[in-house]
């Protein structure tokens, strides 16, 4: 009787094991698990996120910023005053994208590229790291160009930033963005051309299609203006992502919102704004 039991136990364990062994034979448990979709959009609020448009995807973004909420009913709490940035981003590779845009009020054209250096891998690498480099050209009128002091290079400014993000859990992502803004031309000679700052941002998914985003840029050098603080919601509706936000900056490009923010949250200088982005698959 004993023998039969021992035999039976051994046999049954063997049968149950055999299929599991087959699974083990596949040996695919060691493959790296990349962490994806740290943010819904390519921007946290104003600043760039670690997300890039995928390869072959063209993203069209319309951004609007209105006047301050404390500007009274006469200005419909800022809605009368609007500025716009139109932008295109294109994914050349999954790890490389380029973009171009123009901001209306300040009349600047911006071009940038994002390069993903490293991706977050579960239990292997804790961050997704992206380099973002941008150049900004201030437009001029022909009368300006005839002035003796006019130099094309004086119209240029630059941003270089490292975006380091970690998806802490499926809902929460935190991003650090050490940033350097460089102006070829500054207002006063004693003003530094290079301005360093560090951005802290994040998103928290409230539902599968809605997330709360926040972003703060702390200026390390030449702090003559306020630090930009923004809050927003990302709403995804299939093909579009809507981002609605409030910020003490009305600018949509990094040099402006990082170093030239005038608004103060406590005084009610709060700008309402939104970004709408739509993606088009151009090639596979």
């Amino acid at each position: 009787m004993k023998k039969i039991i021992v035999f039976g136990v051994l046999l049954s364990s063997f049968i149950a094991k055999s299929q599991e062994n087959l699974l083990n034979l596949l040996g695919d448990d060691n493959e790296p698990m990349y962490i994806s979709y740290l943010f819904k959009g390519t921007k946290v609020v104003n600043g760039q996120s670690v997300e890039l448009p995928s390869k072959g995807v063209l993203q069209f973004t319309i951004q609007h910023r209105f006047g301050t909420l404390n500007s009274g009913f006469y200005n419909l709490y800022g809605l009368d005053n609007s500025q716009v940035r139109l932008g295109f981003d294109y994914g050349i590779k999954d790890y490389l994208s380029v973009g171009i845009g123009r901001s209306s009020a300040i009349k600047k054209i911006d071009m940038h590229s994002k390069f993903r250096i490293k991706r977050q891998i579960k239990e292997e690498f804790p961050f997704t790291v992206v380099m973002n480099s941008a150049i900004y050209i201030k437009q001029w009128q022909s009368a300006d160009a005839q002035l003796e002091a006019f130099l094309f290079t004086n119209q240029l400014s630059f941003t270089n930033q490292l975006l380091v993000a970690r998806k802490i859990n499926r809902d929460l992502t935190i991003q650090f963005s050490p940033t350097m803004v460089h102006y070829n031309l500054v207002e006063k000679s004693e003003e530094p051309h290079d301005k360093y700052s560090v951005g802290v941002g994040g998103r928290y998914k409230i539902t599968k299609r809605l997330s709360l985003n926040s972003e703060y840029f702390y200026q390390l050098t030449d702090k003559k203006n306020n630090n930009a603080l923004s809050f927003g919601f990302d709403i995804e509706t299939g093909g579009h992502v809507f981002q609605l936000h409030l910020s003490n900056s009305s600018a949509m490009i990094a040099p402006e919102f990082i170093t030239k923010t005038n608004g103060n949250w406590l005084d009610g200088d709060i700008y309402f704004g939104f970004n709408i982005s739509r993606v088009f698959t151009i090639t596979n």
Partner: peptide, 17 residues
């Protein structure tokens, strides 16, 4: 015995979205 295994992230769609 017949066993299959796949990673969900390996599914490739014509559109990345």
């Amino acid at each position: 015995d017949l066993v299959f295994s796949l990673f969900i992230t390996d599914f490739v769609f014509p559109k990345s979205l």
